[in-house]
Design a protein around this nucleic acid. Structure first.
Lengths: 144, 144
DNA sequence: GGAAGTGTTTACTTTTTTGGTTGACAGACA
DNA sequence: TGTCTGTCAACCAAAAAAGTAAACACTTCC
């Protein structure tokens, strides 16, 4: 029940790009130094984000990456889904339709669906800007 | 971001024991046949539940397992924690204190802590009896 | 009291996922 | 042209997940 490093690094990288935004493009080398993750591993992750349209990239000298939108316009859930795949707690919820012949009588299925809902609900109501502000939004679900 | 088969099978096994409760002990062979999981694999899982005090076991002929409490007295979260370990989305939340030297300035930490809260909150408010009743409890977090 | 049924414990194997590394290549700019 | 960057594809090792196997111990029943 863990988010992999890909997802965690992706989030940190997006935040890094936001925090160090000067209008220009930022090289992976710099992000790597700040975040303490190898350039080559960041490459894999940044490629996913870039292909999803979340980043703009420029090659060559003075090249690099930058956010293609404002921080408030990125939901953390979207970033995680790009790198982690669907945020489902069990494999049978992976597809669009439930992929299991015992789905009909499966007594645990509604439970897992409910878990997925609370997870997606949480990650989708948080944006990069929220994390940058560091002011945790009031969260009815996390209260007693 | 997945619950492993151990956790899922554990939940199904507990429900199976509840549904087929006749007062006596139920052999793994029977559970295996119903749930379509090998006896040998179930053994590993049932041992964890047994050691946690969630099941009573008897050896020998006519032996087997049974629930040691009523279904309403098992929180699904507890069952998952026995088999999955702590239900944390990132490793640094594993211990009692945050295990990371950059914890202080880590901008993503509160986000992960919040995610853990909504997950634990959900799994701990569901009991085996709830699943057996199949009536999903009203859940403010899962509503639009 | 012995045999069969069942749980207990430990160890091992296989498969999949994670977390990378390596190297060749291509566009940009000086 | 040469260097700095991103792009792409292949490869690899360690760890975790998932499942198997075997030896053993206790109980019940005949």
């Amino acid at each position: 029940m863990k988010i992999s490093t890909k997802g965690r690094y992706a989030l940190r990288m997006m935040l890094d790009l936001a925090q160090n935004d000067t209008g220009g493009y930022i090289a992976l080398r710099d992000i790597s130094a700040r975040q303490n993750v190898s350039v080559k591993y960041l490459e894999q992750i940044v490629t996913l984000l870039s292909r999803a349209g979340y980043l703009k990239s420029v090659r060559g000298s003075q090249g690099g990456y930058k956010l293609s939108r404002k921080p408030a316009e990125y939901r953390v859930g979207d970033i995680l889904r790009v790198t982690e795949g669907k945020l489902v707690p069990v494999a049978c919820l992976e597809g669009d339709t439930v992929d299991c012949e015992r789905a009909e009588e499966c007594i645990t299925l509604p439970f897992w669906q409910g878990l997925q809902e609370v997870i997606e609900n949480y990650v989708d109501k948080t944006t990069l800007a929220d994390l940058l502000d560091r002011e945790r939004k009031s969260d009815p679900c996390s209260l007693k």
